[in-house]
Design a protein around this nucleic acid. Structure first.
Lengths: 83, 83
DNA sequence: TTCGGATTATCCCATAATGGGATATAGTTG
DNA sequence: CAACTATATCCCATTATGGGATAATCCGAA
């Protein structure tokens, strides 16, 4: 684990993303396929190895069959709790 | 204008960010100051020269005194219209 | 129109982030 | 342990970013 997150909030964001995927019972591979990206793409995002921009966030939510707005709300709640 | 946007949706996102700032009557410098970043940081974001991750998006919204959720909703509407 | 200040866009380029196939690890199940 | 399945890492050529300096635009006043 050589990787360090950008911030506490960022860690919270990642936790939420992973939890959401697990909640849906999806694997990184399945999500990656929907996004037409390699599994390492999802792994890196969830591991804080790669950042997500807004549109990618929306795409990721959709790939997980989650409403972007709902996921964003979760993220906001998460980062408020931390920090 | 050597720069090309990543996608149509991205252009829409940028339009929304700029419009929001103008609506609030703020300059890039003022927003940048609140974020403790140079003016070029904001200029690059708005020019599609630099991408915004989720947390930066939230920070930017707050710097413009806009509710992140509201701004995100605007973005979602914007990218649906396009594409 | 022209001038000058305010605002925004570009330059430069060393440094850091990313893409993605291959491979190593960790986790599960029998 | 064996055999899978799922996730994390490697590697490293490409591409993106940081930010001070400077150029280019905008815009209202005279």
């Amino acid at each position: 684990m050589t990787k360090s997150l950008h911030s506490v909030s960022y860690a919270s964001l990642l936790d939420i993303l992973v939890a959401a995927r697990h909640h849906k019972g999806l694997t990184q591979q399945v999500v990656a396929d929907k996004l037409r990206k390699p599994q390492s793409y999802v792994a890196k995002i969830e591991g804080g190895e790669r950042r997500l921009d807004i549109l990618e966030f929306v795409a990721l939510a959709k790939a997980m069959d989650i409403d972007p707005m709902t996921l964003f709300a979760d993220v906001l709640r998460g980062i408020k709790k931390e920090t």
